[in-house]
Simulated scan of single mutants.
Amino acid sequence: MKNEYTDHAWDERDPSPWLALYLDQSTPLPDEVKAAWLRDCSSSSRQFFLPLVRPMARVSMILIQLLKIFLPKRWSHSMLLHRLLALSMNRFVSPEANWLIMRHFHLGSQVLAFVAANAPVAVTATPLTPMVIDDVKDELFLRHDLNLFNFVIRLNKALRTENKELLPVPEPDFSMLRQPDLRLEDMPRGKLNLLDLQSAIEIYTPVYQLLLTDNDFWRASNSLQLDETVAIYCAKILASPEHLVLLNNKHPLVPMTTLYAAYRLVLHGLSSEMLHSLLMRMARGEIPVPARELAKMHKAAEAVAAEESLAP
């Protein structure tokens, strides 16, 4: 698909902030992902609709929280929720936003598979790889949250049982990493598919809150705190703590109020894209694997020490 940023006219007296962000390479994103992200951010929907819908959505969440005092604790209509999400994504959400949402399930699955493959214990991951928007109907969002928490529990129970911890891996297994087989061109493009990513998430969040149990909704909100947790796992494997710098959903032990869940969910999606991009670049050899370089340094130091010990 045509990338308008590669041919963007540059007026030095009126430089485009979107062109600057696209050309900037401090954020590790593939060009096509960054272009879709910025196209969504610069849309009229985000500029004019988001400021209206965000305060209304947050007021709705407060009212729903009060309503839940009187509803049964097991009040849940997860299947209805996911059917509504799939319907709205097909009819109202922009192609860029839909593409980024669908990519997220693939990227999250691949990152967890990377941690599992390079952990010192046997741990299984449950990948989610939806190919069409209607796959959302299979309680996809709920399963995504459950998979994340279950993976963290499964991994750490195994580490504690075997008295082990995640350590740098000089030759990490990158075999599970690839770009998802999802094309932006295949996303719905009806006349009403105009809603940007952030506005869509702001609308979805109170609906999510209403149609799930309090427990399910709070777990979904608190799952965003695990961005740093998963990034730390990868940083330990790669011996690369500097790659935590672009994280925003932290600290894991200080869960935030659900009122800001929609905004944090957008940050969560962006963090996942950047982490996956970094791992892909390491897999292709475009940037060095710090753990590999560290192992080489240790090996060289050991060789020098061995020679010195043999010297008369």
Rank of each mutant, 00 (worst) to 15 (best):
P206Q: 01
L192G: 09
N147T: 12
D186Y: 00
V207H: 01
F174P: 04
S199Q: 04
L182E: 00
P188H: 04
E162W: 02
T161E: 15
A158G: 11
E202N: 08
A158S: 13
L167Y: 11
T205C: 05
R154C: 04
V152G: 05
E171Y: 13
L195D: 02
V152M: 08
P168H: 05
E171P: 09
L148P: 10
M187P: 07
P188F: 01
L211V: 08
N163K: 11
F149A: 15
E202V: 11
N215T: 10
N150L: 04
V207C: 05
L148M: 14
E171A: 15
N215A: 09
W218L: 09
M176Y: 05
Y208Q: 11
I203Y: 01
L194E: 07
F174A: 05
P172I: 02
L195N: 06
K191S: 14
L177I: 05
L159W: 02
S175H: 10
N156G: 12
F217A: 07
L212F: 07
R160Y: 10
S175G: 13
N147W: 00
L194H: 11
N150Y: 03
D196H: 11
E185W: 00
L167H: 13
D216I: 00
A158D: 06
V169P: 07
L159F: 05
D214G: 11
N163A: 14
A200L: 07
L212N: 14
L166E: 11
R183E: 06
D173S: 02
Q198P: 12
T161M: 10
Q209S: 06
N156Q: 10
R219L: 08
Q198S: 15
M176N: 03
I203F: 13
R154L: 10
R178P: 05
R183I: 00
L210N: 03
E162D: 15
D196G: 13
Q198N: 14
V169Q: 12
R178Y: 00
I203D: 00
K164A: 15
N156E: 10
R178L: 03
W218S: 03
E162T: 10
L211F: 11
V152Y: 01
L177V: 01
E185M: 02
E165N: 13
F149H: 13
V152W: 02
L210D: 00
D214E: 08
L184F: 06
V207D: 00
P168R: 03
Q209R: 11
P180H: 01
P170I: 02
L195I: 13
E171N: 15
L197T: 01
V152E: 08
E162S: 12
D214T: 12
N215G: 10
Q179W: 06
L184A: 08
I203G: 04
P170M: 03
Q209E: 04
Y204N: 03
D216R: 08
I201A: 09
P188T: 01
M176E: 11
S175A: 15
W218K: 09
S199K: 03
N215P: 02
L192T: 12
K164S: 14
L210K: 07
N156C: 08
Y204A: 12
D216W: 04
W218F: 13
L210T: 04
L194W: 13
R154F: 08
F151W: 01
L195C: 12
I201E: 04
Y204E: 09
L211P: 07
T161A: 15
M187A: 04
Y208G: 09
P172M: 05
E162K: 13
N193C: 15
R189V: 09
V152P: 07
N163C: 06
S199T: 10
L192H: 14
L197S: 06
E165H: 11
P168G: 04
A158M: 03
